[in-house]
Design a protein around this nucleic acid. Structure first.
Lengths: 338, 338
DNA sequence: ACTGATAATGCTCACCCTGAGCATAAGAGA
DNA sequence: TCTCTTATGCTCAGGGTGAGCATTATCAGT
């Protein structure tokens, strides 16, 4: 883990060949949950203060047949983790996204993956460690109180930013972004808009793009820790994607043991979504939705009435088109003549 | 359009350098709709019988700042098209997905984009042409009658495949796939599962992976036309993605003129989704959903009562988290104490 | 054993959305 | 005017959702 070179040709060679140096790497946002906190596997490149980096590996074209297998393979080898759910997240290829481009003129393309793992045991000797994703995005955790930074810093700054627009049209569009992303003026908070919020905060100038850039600037605990190059952006993308996915695919179960109580399930979903849910309705949703079935055994360690243990109901995949946590949609109609 | 070389170093050079030859290209599924048919921009590499190929271009690391801008740029230059909506689709990088790997040992990674364009005029001199996407996926168009090939060929083959499973477990899992993807045994037809259906048909041996592979084999009109390398798979991915997106983002409007009748809108959605919708309910959905607003002008060319022209209502973006065509979801609750 | 505290689980109710279909309106053409 | 065709209006039943009250089952003390 932490190996940074992809399949690249040296700068000198490229210069001679005439085509610009290009390097392709794979990286992964590996998510787990521990004690109600969503954890992301990070490698502390500089073990000191400097924030985290996502694990990344070269694209070994000589080995695995598919990119996903390649990801599974190097994560297994380097961290001793057997990934559960894996999906391709996005391919990042903006110019200068990686400091190596400025330094060595080498453009780096990263094909990023999102992966879920149940257990968090890392093989000994790895420099990798689990970190709560809210370390990097404190404003995304609305489970307890609404994080102070939102109302104390972000909202005032947003208002200021909106008001300072030079034209009416610009002001309107800024207001729109503020409303959509941070729920200003009674707007909804859409927990999926992690990346958009991150980008807006960056535009506001309250956070830095990368930890390389932080040097000396006020990073401020309130705005969370920075990450290497554009890794924080990648993480934001992953969080948003996962939060969205929860709603239409039963991916949460990849993070739970085979049997669990409904409260455990709920706490997990809440941890990922960053907000609380109505308990009785959540129960109804997953039970009536056919997502889980009782096992008949009970967990007495609840502090109250014992809770039944449930298991994921595989059969749901065969019954509903998009099982996750409810959704109507574009329904068909048999009425061919309109 | 049709340029196939990405940023690669020659085979000889690579061999010397020791790292395997790798080429990165961008390609795009460019969608438009014409006379109730979703159209995809194709380039007929061999202008003869051999099926289509998606437009692709090299990743010019020297030019545009982002990958998306690069896509817009080469499409503009080479086909004279100004893309509207553009999103990254997926990065395809399986080994041997491209014939160039077998031939020249050069692994090709394709970063694919999905793009929508309103008008279909191509600049003169392009070898590109618009082709209905149902040319390649005839079984995906359920708007009129259910395509015969499904009940006459696919379903029997599926039944056979399920029955011929060697173990009970295998049979069960095959049945599950058949039910989920092709609606066997009264299962639902989920229009988003385009890729899964394509892959299942491939496993059944009724379609070939690429047009290179077709040579001599029975291609069969019923199973549609093949495409170059894995381009048909890329197209399948795009169709599925777009069909899904319709439901939660107002992307359809990218394909319509500024004002349109509700019937035009509905025909368009039906064309993309591959199935018919209930007219009155569709109207209710888009009107009550705040997606459109009347303009007060009317279109008398309907063959019946004139239809009011509507326009897309931008403001909806600010009101609903995921405007598209309806969707509840994971709702919050204020009740912090559960 | 009784008491509170703490959770889990059960159940109700109003409201909205959705699927389906009947009914009416407004043009075109015979 | 009659008929055909498409647009638009409206109703109704059923299910899903948001909210909250009520009951049950354990535990820690007394």
């Amino acid at each position: 883990m932490g190996k940074q070179s992809g399949n690249n040709v040296g700068v000198e060679d490229e210069a001679r060949l005439g085509s610009p140096p290009l390097s392709v790497e794979l990286n992964a946002v590996i998510v787990s949950v521990d004690r109600d906190m969503p954890q992301v596997l990070c490698i502390g490149r500089d073990r000191g203060r400097a924030g985290g980096a996502l694990p990344s590996g070269p694209l070994e074209s000589t080995k695995e047949r598919t990119l996903e297998l390649a990801v599974r393979s190097w994560v297994r080898e380097q961290a001793g983790l057997e990934l559960g759910y894996v999906e391709q997240l996005y391919t990042f290829g903006d110019r200068y996204r990686d400091s190596r481009e400025r330094e060595a003129g080498e453009r780096v393309i990263s094909i990023s993956y999102l992966a879920l793992v149940r257990q968090g045991r890392l093989s000994a000797g790895t420099k990798a460690q689990w970190r709560s994703w809210y370390t990097f995005f404190p404003w995304e955790d609305l489970r307890r109180d609404r994080p102070r930074v939102i109302d104390e810093v972000v909202v005032p700054r947003l208002e200021e930013w909106v008001a300072s627009a030079s034209t009416k049209v610009l002001r309107q569009s800024r207001l729109e972004r503020a409303v959509i992303n941070f729920g200003l003026r009674g707007g909804q908070w859409d927990e999926e808009r992690v990346l958009e919020r991150y980008e807006l905060l960056y535009e506001l100038g309250v956070i830095a793009e990368s930890s390389e850039e932080v040097r000396g600037r006020e990073p401020g605990e309130r705005f969370g820790e920075a990450m290497t190059s554009d890794n924080r952006r990648i993480l934001a993308t992953a969080i948003g994607r996962l939060r969205g996915k929860l709603k239409y695919r039963p991916v949460v179960f990849e993070l739970l043991p085979p049997s669990f109580t409904l409260t455990q399930l709920q706490r997990l979903v809440e941890a990922l979504a960053g907000r609380r849910l109505h308990k009785q309705n959540f129960r109804r949703l997953v039970e009536k939705g056919g997502l889980v079935e009782g096992t008949g055994s009970y967990d007495a360690q609840t502090g109250g009435r014992p809770a039944e243990r449930f298991r994921f109901r595989q059969a749901v995949l065969r019954e509903r088109p998009a099982p996750g946590l409810g959704l109507p949609g574009l329904r068909s109609d048999g009425n061919v003549r309109g």
